[in-house]
Amino acid sequence: MEITCKKCSAVFRAVIDLPLAGPVRVACPVCRQQLTLRPAPSTEVTPPPRPAVKQREAVIVDEPRPFRAFLGAQLQKLGFKVTLFDTGEPALEFVGRTSAALVIVNVYLKGNRLGVDLSEDIKNDPQLKSTRVVLIGALFRANRFRANPTNLYGADEYIEEQIPEKEFRQIIRKLFPEVSPTVEHPTETLEHEDARRLARLILSDIIIYNTAKVEQGIRDGSFFDLLEREISEGRQYFDSRVEMRVRQNSEIFNETLRQFVLMKREELGRTSTA
């Protein structure tokens, strides 16, 4: 930077990193006058605290089952506040009251109102114009040799059970483009999908060969102790099949385990209250 000496008016150059982090002293090469350079007074204004962003309200209307828990967990990760309902009527009342941003509803519901009725009710209500509705198909993973439904009863999107996480997130982001794309699995690739599938298969094998232990473990909270050997064996196999950079990034095996425990807890809770 160029500096003019206040005493002798000589102009000289000094190599100094800008902006200045603090006061810097330099000497004029002509008159040896000591000069002190100070950082410019800050013009930055401290921004006022941001008003708390209201969490988007999401409602899932479906029978209590692992798939509902899966959807709930996914939406929470995407920043939604999730409320669950088994039947249509209380859900509609709640949606009307809260103007929920998103309603995911099974086509078939117990009670007097089907999921398709609920979808039409929401879409016909001018107060709920901005509410997005996603229908859950009644068929199990009918993803092959099958055309999409022609009538969505007003709903914005349609999904089926076993929808991959990635696809589900894409649908939500299509409906809510402002939802952060980096909340979870920012670098999701085909490798990650394959790793996730492998983790599910390993876990599925562990479960089917150890049903009694699994149930006991979930009920009394000793799941990870009772199945320590099997989980460790499964993890070893997983690690031997999945490249380190994929498994390190995402902790896929652990996450699959956690999701399973959550779903199973919900399942057992349902059985015990039935």
Partner: peptide, 10 residues
């Protein structure tokens, strides 16, 4: 069993 469909396909 529904829970084993993914294992069947695999």
């Amino acid at each position: 069993q529904e829970a084993r469909m993914e294992a069947n396909v695999e």
